[in-house]
């Protein structure tokens, strides 16, 4: 199966399941470029020396064009770039489609720090290990703990401007856009520590916005998460979401048992293909649920009227608006209604 690859002259260690394919394409392009470059610059140098001007009055004679040659050097590159396109596209598909069983961790980015929240409500802790010094002048380095060998999906949101999540060893990167959830997933192969960089310019301390991904043995990770969950207590987003669902009266219009009432049922909603009035069908994901709650009129489910209150989003009075945290809890709760 997949294994961690050692750093090469160019690439850092490859520590996720997509790294191998990216590196293969990279090195294919690299050697292709070397061959083409040596061909072009070699021909140029050879011509320059071979046909160096001998006298000021010499007038050389040579071919003006050559159709066969010209067609060849258009068609061969065309075939090559199409192969490269398909290769890159297939690798990209693997990077953007997270496996259904991926563990979801919520990521919040803001100027200039990262924060990570686990399914049971545990929020990341700083690195307690003494020998780990923050780099780049960062004041502290939050730690994203993940289990080795299991897919992890990050649902990321920004509190202010654009940011971007990059772990070079995983070969994955995604911008974090305010006003929506941005997703990235990876499957880290072996335990180890890697750096997280912010790679979308975000102001003064952009270069100090760093974190560590700590890939742990799955058993150790589970134990850690359980222990922390016990300490935090009551922070479980599913429970928090269930409570909100009650207090915000969602249940008045939405059932959790599969029967439609004023609004569609929440049971099995996540991942469902939903028919939309005036629009393409959509597959329900975090972003869709978020939009359905904050801007209910943006997409109307077929067969239902525009009656869901708009007051949960920023159109409502301040005391009725839901915070990002509350929306995240509601999503966690809805996702739990399988």
């Amino acid at each position: 199966m997949d294994r961690v690859t050692d750093p090469t002259f160019w690439m850092p260690k490859g520590a996720s399941t997509v790294a191998g394919d990216v590196d293969q394409l990279y090195y294919f392009l690299y050697w292709l470029s070397v061959v083409l470059f040596v061909g072009i610059v070699g021909a140029m140098t050879w011509f320059a020396l071979r046909y160096k001007r001998k006298s000021e009055t010499e007038i050389p004679h040579g071919p003006h064009h050559n159709t066969v040659l010209e067609v060849t050097w258009t068609v061969i590159p065309l075939i090559l770039v199409m192969v490269i396109f398909v290769w890159g596209f297939r690798g990209y598909l693997r990077m953007v489609v997270a496996p259904g069983d991926a563990m979801v961790i919520n990521v919040t980015a803001q100027q200039w720090q990262w924060s990570f929240t686990y399914p049971n409500g545990v929020v990341d802790a700083m690195d307690e290990r003494k020998d780990k010094q923050p780099v780049n002048g960062a004041k502290d380095m939050p730690v994203l703990r993940v289990p080795a060998g299991r897919p992890v999906k990050l649902v990321m949101r920004s509190n202010d401007v654009l940011h971007s999540f990059w772990v070079p060893e995983f070969r994955v990167k995604h911008d974090i856009v305010p006003g929506q959830y941005s997703m990235v997933w990876f499957n880290a192969i072996e335990p180890g520590d890697y750096r997280v960089f912010c790679t979308e310019y975000c102001g003064q301390d952009h270069s100090m916005m760093m974190a560590t991904v700590m890939v742990m043995k799955p058993e150790e990770f589970d134990a850690w998460l359980k222990k922390k969950g016990g300490e935090v207590g009551g922070g479980d987003p599913v429970a928090a979401g269930a409570l909100l669902y009650k207090t915000k009266a969602c249940g008045g219009c939405h059932s959790t048992d599969g029967k439609p009432s004023v609004g569609p049922t929440m049971k099995g909603l996540f991942g469902r293909k939903e028919e939309i009035t005036d629009g393409q069908p959509v597959t329900v994901d975090e972003n869709y649920i978020r939009e359905s709650i904050l801007e209910p009129r943006a997409k109307l489910v077929k067969g239902f009227g525009p009656v869901m209150p708009e007051s949960y989003g920023n159109k409502g009075p301040a005391d009725q608006q839901l915070s990002e945290k509350q929306v995240e809890s509601l999503i966690a709760f809805i996702k739990s209604l399988k």
């Binding site: 292709l32 470029s33 072009i40 610059v41 140029m44 396109f85 890159g88 070969r171 990167k173 979308e200």
Partner: peptide, 30 residues
């Protein structure tokens, strides 16, 4: 002009790395 051909070849060829999707994800914004 000859320096241009040398340098532009490198510029153009490395553009392919960025045009291909999966390698671009790693290399973009770096």
């Amino acid at each position: 002009a000859m320096a241009f051909m040398f340098l532009f070849s490198i510029g153009g060829l490395t553009g392919i790395f960025l045009g291909a999707l999966s390698t671009d994800v790693h290399l973009t914004d770096s």
